[in-house]
Simulated scan of single mutants.
Amino acid sequence: MNPRRTPRSGSAEELLNTLQSLTARARQEVELHQARVELAQALQREMLPASLPTLPGLQSAARYAPARHGLDIGGDWYDGFPLPDGALGFAIGDVQGHDVEAAAFMGQIRIAMRAIAATASDPGDVMARTNDLLLSVDSALFATCTFLRLDPRTWELHSARAGHVACVWGTVDGLSGITEDPGGLPLGIAAGEHYPVTRRTLDTAGTLVLLTDGVVEGPSLLIEDGLDRVRRLVGAHSGASAEELADEVLGAAEFTGHEDDAAVLVLRHEAARRPR
């Protein structure tokens, strides 16, 4: 049986050098972490629109929270833009994955959808042509999306959905609900996919909330429960502005466990003007 060896104690100078080395390494890791966070936030800011269109009787607001509190670049996005005929286009979507490739694919979808929507007035056609264009670039990624087209003259809203989470609606008198619009497959999966269009007239003043699943689904929350939470929020804040409601809805993402990035797009509208 060998006698136990007594570990040698380092000198005070060796211990100090080791401590300085560990401190320097920790500082570098903190700086690298902060650089990654700032890069993710900067890239996401550049990918998302600087502003959203508004018009008399319509407020629009959006919010975005990065995945894992800024550590990853996410593929969630929202968009809003005027169309050549005077209508407004709004979109929200979610690309599979959380990396630079997902962010780049998200940028491709935004650009493609804007370009196609400028020449195609039917949201189902916009979605189908965007889908086929994305398939032509031969990417392994796919994305869910909802696209809306609002005519400010008639207050008619036409929408199409590609595998995306349902919208939440509310009225000024506190009623609220979850849409059950039909839809097609996510973008980038199958060529020739058909996307049915839902048509509605905004004849009651209220709010439409578009969101990604990072707001309503996660390790701590089923998507049905998350959507119902947002529905109750919308009903309880019927008098809030679009900006205030966007903050409230994004806050609901904290109940999911927040492992995914999250996006919210709020449209607060007046009722359609009836002809006299």
Rank of each mutant, 00 (worst) to 15 (best):
R149C: 03
A272Y: 06
M106C: 08
E38S: 14
L150C: 13
A191T: 05
V126Q: 10
S136Y: 07
Y78M: 01
R114D: 05
A271C: 08
G192W: 11
Q44P: 10
T144E: 05
R129P: 09
D228A: 09
R114Q: 11
T207K: 03
R229N: 07
S220N: 15
L227W: 00
Q108G: 11
R268P: 06
V172K: 13
E254M: 12
G107I: 05
R229G: 05
A253E: 06
V264T: 07
A24H: 13
D76M: 07
L265D: 03
P84T: 09
A240E: 10
E259S: 10
A253R: 13
S51K: 08
L222W: 12
E244C: 06
L227P: 02
E14S: 14
P53M: 10
G10E: 14
E244V: 14
P123T: 07
L250E: 07
P275W: 13
R268H: 15
L157F: 06
A240V: 06
L208T: 09
A262C: 08
A205H: 08
S9F: 09
G75K: 02
G183D: 02
V30N: 11
P275V: 11
A128T: 00
Q108S: 11
A263E: 00
L22H: 09
T54Q: 14
P7F: 03
S121C: 06
Y64D: 07
T119C: 07
L22Y: 09
G206Y: 05
A120F: 00
A35N: 13
A35L: 12
V215F: 04
G183S: 07
P186C: 02
N2D: 13
G184T: 05
G170R: 10
T256L: 10
I116Q: 05
H194G: 02
S159D: 03
D94P: 04
P219I: 14
D260M: 03
E156G: 03
G89M: 02
P219R: 15
Y195F: 13
G124D: 01
L245G: 00
D247Y: 04
D72F: 14
R110A: 11
E31T: 11
V249K: 00
A240N: 05
G75T: 03
A42H: 10
H33T: 14
A112K: 04
Q44Y: 02
L43W: 10
Y64L: 09
M1A: 15
S60D: 07
N131I: 00
Q20F: 06
V197Q: 01
S51N: 08
M1W: 13
T144P: 01
I92W: 01
D181M: 08
G80H: 02
L267N: 11
F90D: 01
N17A: 15
E180V: 02
L210R: 04
P53E: 05
M47C: 11
E46V: 14
S121E: 13
M106D: 00
P3G: 14
